[in-house]
Design a binder for these strands. Sequence first.
DNA 1: CGCGCCGTTGAGGCTCCTCAACCCGGGTGG
DNA 2: CCACCCGGGTTGAGGAGCCTCAACGGCGCG
Lengths: 200, 200
Amino acid sequence: MFSRARRTIAFTGEASDSVIMICEGWAISFIQLPDGRRQILSVLLPGDLVSVASLFDRRQQTAVQTLTDVSYCLYHRLDVLQKLMAEPPVMDALGAITIAEKQEADALLMDLGRRTAEERIALLILRLLDRLGRRNLARGDVVNFPLRQQHIADITGLTPVHVNRTLGNFRRDGILEISDCVLKILDMHALRRLGETRCP
Amino acid sequence: MFSRARRTIAFTGEASDSVIMICEGWAISFIQLPDGRRQILSVLLPGDLVSVASLFDRRQQTAVQTLTDVSYCLYHRLDVLQKLMAEPPVMDALGAITIAEKQEADALLMDLGRRTAEERIALLILRLLDRLGRRNLARGDVVNFPLRQQHIADITGLTPVHVNRTLGNFRRDGILEISDCVLKILDMHALRRLGETRCP
DNA sequence: CGCGCCGTTGAGGCTCCTCAACCCGGGTGG
DNA sequence: CCACCCGGGTTGAGGAGCCTCAACGGCGCG
């Protein structure tokens, strides 16, 4: 399947026996309140399942929106579950995905609950770089980066205005630059330092 | 197995082939930064697995601490996985747990990212009441409630001081009272209203 | 040309944090 | 038996971080 950028390819509350896996491009899964407040739960990169839970649930708990043009696969829930029961390697793969998903979610919870704006944004970028690196999708210090400031805000629980100021500081301090969907890391050490916790 | 209140029964980074399931009492799973900041990821009630991910991971990603005296079971990871492959009903149960866990985590992310202190605390209590109700552990408007204000702060990403003031307001407004590990709901409708999103 | 999206910047204000002090009850040890 | 400490709750004062509102510029697109 294929979708243009900025399309919603799964809606909250919708029933569906399909499980989405991203093959190419970036997407997000998120939930939204009636008053418009939105929280992005995860950024989906090539190879990602929307969530392991979607394997077991007919009802979509989250919406999925593409950031770039995206190609993705739709598997039938029950087919996957059957394979799971029959083939141990598939189960192992599911285990690995489960662990990765949980780690990302836990890290984000810690960010939102206990970290400053600077730390949240620095760590968001570091984790994305790490995930891209593992998939050989990032070579060097210049990376394709389709997240808008509004997206960064909806991931980190900040406002777009404050994201803008913080990114402005990063640029001013020669740490990184984002422009035209391109992220340039200028000082990886400084970026790491921002993400690390300074013990008092 | 049995543990007294306020004991740590699993440590971050520790390797172990056991999976913990709470049988009686309350516990929390959390992560902590070197500088002391702590984020509680979930409150564990009777019947809860620490996390589905712990089934697949030898390494504990989170710490687990008891709030009350707790009795719990230790299963061997591989035994459970084997049962999972062999017995479809076990797989179904795992599916249900996976879904519930994801919903709780998503709700908490939304809280931390996008809700006010009042909403976070109100929703924390509402979700706990709901979970207790499903297990027939809550009868009526008076519930055993072993969370200290410090715990509420570490779940909601607030400071204990601010939790105190917010709970003080709830009490002043006749919404709820917490004292001596007992939660009294005085006005459930008002509490629900606090948790709901007012559309603008 | 006009419009909408996105990034940027300024001014002002609210939520929530920090620091600090105090109270209370329970445990502990001299 | 009492002094002491410690964990937990409560309250006040002041301040920081982040938000809100608002305006503007650049760019792509109909």
